[in-house]
């Protein structure tokens, strides 16, 4: 088998198409051409972890049920969510024992999400940093991180998700009860104005 693509619509629907190794770009273009809608195509991996042969393709984020709605609506649905962890000082007062315990919980939490394929990337951020801004000219100042309780200590970028799921994941953050807050933000799939322009053009063409 050369491979199959599974097309996942926003309302769970699967479409399978075959493709050959190295044709990812073509699949992506075809998906848009065949359906004429702002799909996002993502190629999965085969057992060996490379993008070829038996890979699954999931096309996520078809926005609308029928064509008319699809083109008139300027909003896109996203499948990516950013979780931002705010608070960089909460852990300084934990005891070594508590640190180890919460660390274990955090690792399990992240590990499970990784196994489920929900994590696109995840990183902790260092406290130190700079802020570039404009006063009379460009200025560089030390970040507010050293003092700020609101500074971001790390992030997860979730994929293949929706808002409800992202919120459920955020609620399981093991540091919440120690004062960390989690900000959940959908990642914009396309620049909204460009979507608007595109929709108008298509609407015009079909009129």
């Amino acid at each position: 088998m050369d491979g199959c693509a599974i097309v996942v619509a926003a309302t769970p629907r699967y479409e399978i198409c075959r493709f050959k190794s190295g044709q990812s770009e073509k699949i992506r273009q075809n998906a848009v051409l065949n359906n004429g809608s702002p799909f996002v195509v993502r190629l999965g991996q085969n057992e060996k972890g490379s993008e070829c042969g038996k890979a699954h393709v999931r096309i996520v984020g078809r926005a609308k049920k029928d064509n008319k709605d699809r083109y008139m609506n300027t909003q896109t649905t996203t499948s990516e969510y950013m979780l931002l962890f705010r608070g960089t000082h909460w852990d300084k007062s934990l005891s070594p024992e508590e640190l180890q315990n919460v660390m274990g919980q955090w690792a399990e939490w992240l590990d499970r999400l990784n196994q489920q394929g929900k994590i696109k990337s995840a990183n902790p951020l260092l406290d130190e940093g700079k802020i570039v801004s404009w006063k009379k000219s460009q200025t560089v100042a030390d970040g507010p991180f050293a003092e700020s309780k609101e500074a971001i200590g790390g992030y997860f970028l979730l994929q293949k998700s929706d808002l409800d799921e992202a919120l459920e994941i955020a609620k399981r953050c093991p540091a919440l009860k120690y004062g960390v807050t989690v900000e959940v933000r959908p990642v914009a799939e396309q620049c909204p104005p460009s979507v608007r322009v595109k929709s108008r053009r298509i609407a015009h063409a079909s009129a």
Binding site: V40, Q45, G117, K160
Partner: peptide, 13 residues
């Protein structure tokens, strides 16, 4: 954009 996971990541469990 493909969804191949970052295989360099050490298992953290």
């Amino acid at each position: 954009m493909n969804e191949i996971q970052d295989n360099n990541r050490v298992p953290v469990g």
